[in-house]
Amino acid sequence: MSRFALLLSAVFFIVNSHQVLAEPENYTLDPTHTYLHFGISHLGFSTMYGRFDQSSGRFLIDSVAKTASVKVTIEAASINTGLEKRDDHLRSPDFMNAVEFPVVTYHSTAVTFKGEYPSVIEGNLTLLGVTKPVTLTITAFKCGVNPMNKRAMCGMDAVGSMKRSDFGMTYALPGVGDELKLTIEAEGYKD
């Protein structure tokens, strides 16, 4: 009987864990675990890193049909490099122009899967009112149940790059680098 119960619970676990990604599922990004980090050359001497502290968004994933989509909105004024005076300058019209363009958005157009998990996201980034394609490569992806709050969630790490001049952000080129290295950490809870 105890063996039967063990087998039943194992089958139940396998079925349940498969169900986590069995159908199209909507996830809402957790802003406390979702950040866009960037790195940019400072006069060619070093790479300066910063991040955007506030973002929101949703993603949909169907690992059976191998489809997914993502929509993210980032608050431009939440840029944070750890130095208030520099952040003020980065918010100014010289760079982010955060008053005139308060949000940066990223909408996926196609997601490529490797096995049952997404591996590459192609999408459009809108920055300073200019929309250009930006591709992100997913370096880690995991779905499951959060052991702390027992809620179903997915998380991922992704990397990409973009040229700020493509979006009309040309101030201080070429001293302050043109290419931005993007690193994204994102987690979302199932709706």
Binding site: P93, N97, E100, F101, G129, G168, T170, Y171
Partner: peptide, 13 residues
């Protein structure tokens, strides 16, 4: 020297 005369995106600047 610091910007351009491109008026495609008509920002405040």
């Amino acid at each position: 020297l610091i910007s351009d005369f491109n008026f495609d995106s008509l920002t405040i600047i």
